[in-house]
Simulated assay, not measured.
Amino acid sequence: MKIAIGSDHAGFKYKEQIIAHLKELGHEVKDCGTYSLDSTDYPLWIIPTAEAVARGECERGIVLGGSGNGEAMAANKVKGVRCALCWSDETAQLSRQHNNSNVLSIGERMISIEIALRIVDIWLTTEFEGGRHVNRIAELDRYEAGQPMQ
């Protein structure tokens, strides 16, 4: 799978470790930055990561910051992105099963790297359940396209 990944300075250490982990698993990684611990504004790195997913250049995206909140907000500004902030096995699993998330947000200051890597693995291997959730995703898509929801 081709995965875009981006972070600000507060998510940089986990980004680097997650990149190594993804490559070990055989995934192709597009590193959208940042490239150091120097203080920077998260939208500069998160929006290009989300855009790579929205354009279809990458199948999924992972964004990281201190809490992951701002990163999720920035990613969700990009049409076609459904970014989920995850902090546990269950939130990662449900974000894929029920919400068909295509971008994952993680807060480096909120969880350990062990939990973060486990979340990444669960998120990457969990399939969208479909069923009753298909209509809910379609409603989001309609709203995003400026059409009325049913």
Score class of each variant (00 low, 15 high):
Lys2Thr: 11
Lys2Leu: 04
Lys2Gln: 11
Ile3Arg: 00
Ala4Gln: 02
Ala4Thr: 04
Gly11His: 02
Phe12His: 13
Phe12Glu: 03
Lys13Asn: 12
Lys15Met: 07
Lys15His: 10
Lys15Cys: 11
Glu16Met: 14
Gln17Val: 00
Gln17Phe: 01
Gln17Asp: 13
Gln17Thr: 06
Gln17Pro: 00
Ile18Val: 15
His21Asn: 07
His21Thr: 03
Lys23Met: 13
Glu24Arg: 15
Leu25Glu: 14
Glu28Arg: 01
Glu28His: 04
Lys30Leu: 15
Cys32Asn: 15
Cys32Met: 15
Gly33Tyr: 11
Thr34Asp: 01
Thr34Leu: 02
Thr34Ser: 10
Tyr35Gln: 00
Thr40His: 09
Thr40Val: 15
Thr40Asp: 12
Asp41Pro: 08
Tyr42Val: 05
Pro43Asp: 07
Ile47Leu: 02
Thr49His: 08
Thr49Asp: 08
Ala50Pro: 12
Glu51Ile: 13
Val53Leu: 00
Val53Tyr: 06
Ala54Ser: 15
Arg55Ser: 14
Arg55Cys: 08
Gly56Gln: 03
Gly56Glu: 00
Glu57Cys: 07
Cys58Gln: 04
Cys58Ser: 13
Arg60Asp: 10
Gly61Ser: 06
Ile62Glu: 02
Ile62Cys: 03
Val63His: 04
Val63Asp: 09
Leu64Arg: 08
Gly65Phe: 03
Gly65Lys: 08
Gly65Pro: 11
Gly68Ala: 09
Asn69Thr: 14
Gly70Tyr: 06
Glu71Met: 12
Ala72Ser: 15
Met73Glu: 10
Ala74Thr: 04
Ala74His: 03
Asn76Met: 10
Lys77Arg: 15
Lys77His: 04
Val78Met: 04
Lys79Leu: 13
Gly80Tyr: 04
Leu85Gln: 04
Ser88Pro: 08
Asp89Gln: 09
Asp89His: 08
Glu90Lys: 13
Thr91Tyr: 02
Thr91Gln: 02
Ala92Thr: 02
Ala92Trp: 04
Ala92Asp: 05
Gln93Glu: 15
Gln93Asn: 04
Gln93Thr: 03
Leu94Gln: 10
Gln97Trp: 00
His98Arg: 08
Ser101Pro: 12
Ser101Cys: 12
Asn102Asp: 08
Asn102His: 11
Asn102Lys: 07
Ile106Lys: 09
Ile111Asn: 10
Ile111Pro: 02
Ile115Pro: 00
Ile115Asn: 12
Ala116Leu: 07
Arg118Thr: 12
Ile119Thr: 05
Ile119Glu: 00
Trp123Arg: 01
Leu124Asp: 09
Leu124Gln: 06
Thr126Gly: 05
Glu127Asp: 13
Phe128Lys: 09
Phe128Gly: 01
Arg132Glu: 06
Val134Met: 07
Val134Asn: 01
Asn135Leu: 09
Ile137Lys: 11
Ile137Arg: 01
Ile137Thr: 10
Ala138Leu: 11
Glu139Asn: 14
Gly146Ile: 13
Gly146Thr: 05
Gly146Met: 02
Gln147Ala: 14
Pro148Met: 04
